[in-house]
Amino acid sequence: MNSIIQERTVGGRKLLAVFAHPDDETFICGGTLAKYAAEGTEITLVSATRGEMGRRMGNPPYLNRETIAAARERELREACDCLGISRLHFLNIRDKTVEFIDEAHLTARIEALIAETQPDVVLTFHEKLGGHPDHCAIGKLTTEAFRRSGCKGSLFFISFGNTMENPERFGYTRGDIAKIDVSAHLEAKLAAFRAHRCQSEIDEWVWLPDEEALSRFGAYEYFIKGDHSVPLRDAGDLFQTNAAQTL
């Protein structure tokens, strides 16, 4: 069944984010999602799993394998509210098994979601730079689904921290990288970090006074263009191609 959070945006631009676990959206690109939500973008978040195999159980631990999935779902819903994400959908795949799911079936499910949402931008993991088997698997299949769908929007891969400040190390150029200024949306990102309580309690800095905690965040989040044969028109906006087409 679909899990839907109350929709708060109508019309305008649409963004579809397809990730593997609760907290991927916050810890990696929460500032960007908050920025676009604040600008009126309708954001649909897809989480392949509920993160039930995560090793963090709170600090001190208060969850177990029987209770963690429900807790992480609740926390994700709260984080979505903090970031302004309007729609949430679970693929109901068991954590740490995404790479073993039938590829054709899962690709078709994601393609159907693309057809349903008609996004201007799709975000997912890079299939080789995702850092976790679930990340890489969902990135690979979302990329394939995007290409099969004939979606007219743009595909971007999320990246960790400021690693793409020097993209040449990964076979990309600066012209392949979108650098999004999220400095005005760090409060929302911190609130979402704190919403993912069982995952963030162990990180003491998250719970410092707001000013100190906010200082730990970078002012930018970085994204790799899915089709790097076409240069970015505006490296500071994921929607620049679509905006240009509608002028």
Rank of each mutant, 00 (worst) to 15 (best):
C151L: 09
C136G: 03
T117Q: 11
T124S: 12
T117N: 11
A104F: 08
L129T: 01
F146C: 11
F100L: 07
E116G: 00
H89C: 10
S159F: 01
A104K: 14
T143W: 07
H135F: 06
F146A: 05
K96W: 03
A115N: 15
I114G: 09
L141E: 07
D102C: 10
F156S: 01
S159G: 03
I110E: 09
G131T: 05
F125P: 09
A104Y: 05
C151D: 04
T142G: 06
R147E: 13
I114D: 10
Q118I: 07
F90I: 07
N162R: 14
K96H: 05
N92K: 10
H135V: 05
V121L: 05
R148D: 08
D95K: 09
E103F: 11
H132L: 00
I93K: 00
A112M: 10
L113H: 08
S149P: 11
I93V: 15
R109W: 07
L155A: 02
H135C: 03
S159Y: 03
T163I: 14
V121R: 05
G161D: 14
L129A: 01
K128S: 09
H126I: 03
G131A: 06
H105P: 00
L113Y: 07
K96I: 05
R94I: 12
D102V: 11
I93M: 08
F156M: 04
H105M: 13
C136K: 02
A104E: 15
P119C: 04
L123M: 11
C151M: 06
R148C: 09
K96Q: 11
R147H: 09
R94H: 14
L141C: 05
T117D: 11
N162L: 11
G139S: 00
V98P: 10
L91Q: 08
R147T: 11
G131Y: 03
T107N: 01
F100W: 10
V121G: 06
E116N: 08
F160Y: 13
C136R: 04
A115L: 14
F146V: 09
D134P: 07
L129R: 06
L129F: 09
K152C: 04
K96L: 13
R148N: 14
K140T: 04
F157V: 00
F156V: 01
G131K: 02
N162G: 10
L91G: 08
R148H: 11
G161S: 08
T163E: 13
T143S: 14
T117K: 14
V98Q: 04
V98M: 03
E99K: 05
F157A: 00
E99I: 00
E116P: 03
H132A: 01
T117H: 15
D95N: 06
L106F: 12
H89M: 13
A115C: 12
L141P: 01
F125G: 01
H132F: 03
F100Y: 15
G161L: 12
R109Y: 01
D95F: 08
